[in-house]
Design a protein around this nucleic acid. Structure first.
Length: 297
DNA sequence: TCACGTCAAGCAGAT
DNA sequence: ATCTGCTTGACGTGA
């Protein structure tokens, strides 16, 4: 059982998600940016190792414009060695990795160009993890997609499109329940049809569910992860107090978190803290977890 | 150094 | 019709 945070570390003074405008694209600019992003990724990982935070989501902005037609540069070859080194660092410290392509990745889009672009974007994510030579427990999480006014047809389209994906993508792809469109129940149905693992987002589940209790939800989604997929992943957040429903809290609510650990006691899983202050909350959560819970070594 | 208009990409609910 | 959230502001021009 591990705790992690996504993409950005706000304490160490560098970012691994630096980008630039399409208009200012040049090969030099790309190389320079990726170089710095990789440097920073190493620094973040070293920070995490030092603090026993062994789950991390790598930013999709690591290589800007990697899936855009403007990018003709063979960054894979150019940075091969660096990716491998980072992969070694990850593996030697047994760090769990995820990536989360953004909202433009839609397997079930009605628009074929959107689908084609999604494939390119997924391929880019796969390349990053493959260049690091990470095993298939390093996952790429996406939402199921749009509804387009016909949910059943859209689910069917997801299944058909998923079946035809390259094995390199399929072996890393997982779906996450979202807060408005596809619930845990929908994701479980998709798992039954395709075998794709379900990443459980507990905050989304609170906003969009079929009244499954937490223990029931855990019993169901954890079963969708096979041995080769690694330990099931969970996205954790809680409601920002006094704000609109669905707004993420600024910093971890430790009472809520302790209760969450209690409710999920029989299960083993890795927790991604989707909380604004990133590593700060991860440090707080680690402290609580190490003290109160023997699932954390 | 700073203000601020705009930024690769989609969907859907809210206003 | 336009804005906003999504995992997240921040790039870069003009002054």
């Amino acid at each position: 059982m591990k705790i992690g945070y996504p993409c950005i570390n706000r304490s160490i003074g560098c970012k691994s998600n630096k980008t630039f405008r399409l208009k200012s694209y040049s090969e030099e600019r790309l190389i320079e940016t990726v170089d710095k992003n990789l440097d920073c990724l190493v620094r973040i990982l070293e920070f995490n190792i030092k603090h026993n935070i062994l789950f991390f989501r790598i930013t999709s902005d690591l290589v800007p414009f990697a899936s855009h037609p403007i990018c003709k540069f063979d960054w894979q070859e150019y940075f091969k060695g660096r990716f491998k080194e980072i992969g070694n660092l990850i593996e030697s410290h047994n760090i769990r990795i995820s990536m989360h392509p953004d909202q433009f990745v839609l397997i079930n889009s009605l628009n074929n160009t959107v689908f084609e672009n999604s494939l390119k974007e997924l391929n880019y994510h796969v390349e990053v993890l493959d260049l690091m030579e990470l095993d298939t427990s390093a996952k790429i999480q996406i939402h199921v997609g749009g509804i387009y006014g016909e949910k059943e047809k859209s689910i069917k389209r997801f299944i058909e499109r998923f079946e035809k994906l390259d094995e390199t993508i399929k072996r890393r792809l997982v779906i996450e329940n979202d807060d408005r469109r596809y619930s845990l129940k929908d994701c479980l149905l998709l798992n039954a049809e395709t075998g794709i693992p379900v990443l459980f987002d507990i905050f989304h589940h609170e906003l969009n569910n079929s009244e499954e209790k937490i223990s029931e939800a855990f019993r169901l989604f954890t079963k969708t992860w096979r041995k080769k997929d690694g330990i099931p992943m969970v996205d954790y957040s809680s409601q920002k107090k006094g704000e609109l429903k669905g707004k993420h809290t600024e910093s971890i609510d430790l009472e809520h978190f302790k209760n969450f650990l209690k409710l999920t006691e029989p299960f083993d899983f890795d927790i991604m803290l989707e909380i604004k202050d990133k590593e700060k909350s991860a440090l707080k959560a680690m402290k609580v977890a190490l003290k109160d819970d023997d699932r954390f070594i």
